[in-house]
Structures are given as structure tokens and as C-alpha cells.
């Protein structure tokens, strides 16, 4: 089973991410859970496109012509940039919430709202 280690890591990371998102009350920790989940997706995409013995799909002085699949890597790049953008937005919202309510605990924020 060791040759499937990336996919098993993906499952473990997905489980950790979903549990963190569902059970934690702090907004910053929820954001960390979302980031772990996103890392799991990125690892899944990259390991899905791996070909045995392949090199990176760049032809500049490449050691061999056997290359891994380029499309999952390009889409992983897209996913990383979108993750950075959403993380910045969520952190800004957390700062605004802390300024308004004095806490980042979602239960207390909901109670204050009434």
C-alpha cells in the first residue's frame, strides 16, 4: 500500500480539514481548515497527473522526453492563486468582525446579533 501514499495522505488531509471546519469556533481556525482542505485538493490534482519516471513538462534542456501531465499542474496553479485571494478576503472579514464585536468566536457573534 505504500505506493498509494499520496492518495492516502489526501484522504487524511481531507478528513482533518472537514473536521476543523465543522467543529472549531474560531474564525481563524476555520480559515486554517479551509486551507488544509485546499492543500488536499492541490495534492490530489498533482499526484493524479504523475507518470512513473516522468520529469517536469518543460522542454528547456530536459533530461528525457517522458513527462508528467501538464494540465493538472496548470489547474493547480489556478487553484493556489484563488486560495490566496479568498484567504485575504476571509482574514479581512475576521479583522472587521473583531473590530465590531471584540471576539472572533462565531457562537458569541451570533448571540450578540440576537
Amino acid at each position: 500500500m505504500l505506493w498509494n501514499l499520496p492518495f492516502i495522505t489526501v484522504v487524511v488531509l481531507t478528513f482533518i480539514g472537514i473536521v476543523t471546519v465543522l467543529l472549531k469556533k474560531n474564525i481563524i481556525k476555520i480559515l486554517l481548515g479551509i486551507n488544509i482542505l485546499e492543500s488536499a485538493v492541490n495534492l490530489f490534482l498533482v499526484s493524479l497527473g504523475y507518470r512513473e519516471g516522468g520529469v517536469a513538462p518543460i522542454f528547456t534542456l530536459a533530461p528525457s522526453e517522458l513527462m508528467v501531465l501538464p494540465t493538472p499542474q496548470a489547474l493547480t496553479l489556478t487553484s493556489i492563486v484563488i486560495g490566496v485571494a479568498t484567504s485575504a478576503l476571509v482574514l479581512s472579514f475576521a479583522m472587521v468582525l473583531y473590530k465590531k464585536y471584540g471576539t472572533v468566536d462565531i457562537d458569541k457573534i451570533r448571540r450578540l446579533q440576537g
Partner: peptide
């Protein structure tokens, strides 16, 4: 675009702080 955008995000968050 990425240069301007990420630097702008850092600057705006620091202004809030």
C-alpha cells in the same frame, strides 16, 4: 496585476491594524 494586487492587500490590512 499580481504585484499590485498582493502589495495592495498587505497595505490595506495594515491600514486597518
Amino acid at each position: 496585476e499580481v504585484w499590485g494586487g498582493l502589495t495592495l492587500v498587505i497595505l490595506y490590512m495594515l491600514s486597518g491594524l
